[in-house]
Design a protein around this nucleic acid. Structure first.
Lengths: 227, 227
DNA sequence: CGACTCATTGACGTAGCTCAAGGTATGTGG
DNA sequence: CCACATACCTTGAGCTACGTCAATGAGTCG
């Protein structure tokens, strides 16, 4: 049973030797580098070997909505053929140093069509994106800000890119940009969670002190069922 | 260039003869029948031959968020293997009489893995779901209710299941359930659009009188670019 | 050490919520 | 075919969560 995750990693690791057999360019990104420029069609696929990439949708009037994070062992962005208007607003940038292999989308697409296991993985990954966005559009939307934040912290603590579930490496602005709420609203709700002894807030990261109490602020659809 | 669509149809029509070669059960649904019962795992895939199915996510406390509509020539719900918590809350029901072919998910999955063109179509359809939910989670979220409604009417008029772009067959409660806003808020904004001469509102449907003026209420990410 | 960026807190306005009451199509049974 | 019930739609009143604006504090970096 799976819950939504914002951070993708290692779902393509087992294809590394397969990817090696295909034409690619080894790329090295510095913090702040983008995978492509805004407005230009997306013609490449990346297999991330190390580092973290943040992907966001930039709104016409300055808003930025963070969509997800990709780190080692995953592929991004995908390999369908349709061209969606919305893709023009999507921005992916390295938030750490990143090592990746860059494929032409056609080459990657051909590989997917030839390798059944890779093909199945692409479907699973797409399903995972669908689940995440569905969660946000259909569920998270109804919740008050405090619950949204608790849900987010809980999910990040489950699927942490660093592996340390207690430590959530997000700034308050990041949280605001993921949840599409104001950073002031984030600060005020974090103040409440702090007062309750559930978290400790720091510059650019948050420590979860009491996961049980945090869970009690979450919605049931977010929590993993007890086993 | 594609914009989001809420209504899916005919994207699998060309596979009809292929589907005929695979074991399936012909099913006939009456208005209100559900494709599966809530809470039970989804083990079937449907190829809809006629009629319309509405799919919604039922919220724990009585809310219902309409996700999309599927009509003739499309397949639903899909064929990945992961099992997501959220799937338990998804409900699909016939809103007209429906004729469909029902496949076991394993049979359908095998077919997808064997037929490259079908496989590619599944990817495209998944991409389309991603685009729709992305649109809602990342873009529509930021807009005021009037703009959300205008966007929705515009998109429904572009991709109408009936083919008549002027007539949008949605009740005000449907609109509320798609946009996750209250039906009262819908009524008030429709009153404004009515006053401006942009629409006529009826019981369970809306006529678009002035598409140009409607477009001026939409967000640029929603509109198809001029050609 | 100064110049950032990030975090905290208060004051205040407003979009959209709920509650409530009434109006108008549609369907059903006597 | 009319009476009645049942949606669906409309409009108003009042509340509140969350947004913006503003000012200050607290880490971090060149």
């Amino acid at each position: 049973m799976l819950v939504p995750h914002y951070c993708f990693s290692r779902d393509y690791s087992r294809f590394e030797s397969l990817f090696e057999t295909v034409a690619h360019r080894k790329v090295r990104l510095k913090v702040g580098d983008r995978l492509w420029n805004i407005g230009e069609p997306i013609r490449k696929v990346y297999f991330i070997r190390s580092g973290i990439v943040k992907t966001a949708l930039e709104h016409e009037d300055g808003f930025s909505k963070i969509l997800f994070y990709h780190s080692d062992g995953t592929c991004f962005p995908g390999c369908h053929n349709s061209y969606y208007q919305l893709e023009n607003s999507i921005v992916s940038e390295a938030i750490t140093g990143v090592d990746a292999w860059e494929f032409d989308i056609e080459d990657f697409y051909n590989l997917v069509m030839e390798d059944r296991e890779l093909n199945a993985q692409v479907l699973e990954t797409y399903a995972s994106y669908i689940n995440l966005f569905l969660y946000q559009a259909a569920h998270q939307d109804y919740n008050p800000a405090l619950m949204k934040i608790a849900n987010l912290l809980y999910l990040f603590s489950l699927y942490s890119p660093t592996g340390d579930g207690e430590r959530v490496n997000l700034s308050q602005q990041d949280i605001a940009d993921i949840l599409a709420i104001s950073h002031i609203n984030v600060a005020k709700n974090l103040a409440y969670l702090r007062k309750e002894g559930i978290i400790e807030s720091h510059r650019k990261w948050i420590r979860i002190l009491d996961l049980d109490k945090l869970e009690s602020c979450c919605s049931v659809e977010t929590l993993l069922p007890d086993v």
